[in-house]
Amino acid sequence: MKWSFDHDRPIYTQIIEQMKLFIASGEYRAGEKLPAVREMAQEAGVNPNTMQRAFSELENAGLVFANRTSGRFITEDINMVEKLKEELASEAVRSFLDSMKRIGYDKAKTIELIEKSIEERGDDKDE
């Protein structure tokens, strides 16, 4: 797993974003046990307190839960993961549409371009 951080935003918010992506994409599966905070901090090259803070927020959001004796796990609630996926997808579309607007593409032109690009790619048909 590869972590990458921007330099101008708090790291813990970036960890939260990337964890959400890992959960949505299935890199971490529902119910999967997570490595210890220290281990994950080391992997990401961040301060353990920062990793801890990100996990506390993910816990509050219900995406991760802690079991006192056996560690931390990804939520087992499949619906929640589905919902997260939808959220991330709409966010991505929203920011895409914002960029297109800035470039000066209107709705029709944008849709036209999307269809053309999908056709050209072809290989992602099944998804």
């Binding site: 330099h7 101008d8 935003r9 708090p10 790291i11 813990y12 920062t50 803070r53």
Partner: peptide, 10 residues
């Protein structure tokens, strides 16, 4: 560090 980044955006 988190405060500095969120307060200054850098």
């Amino acid at each position: 560090v988190d405060n500095i980044r969120s307060d200054n955006g850098k």
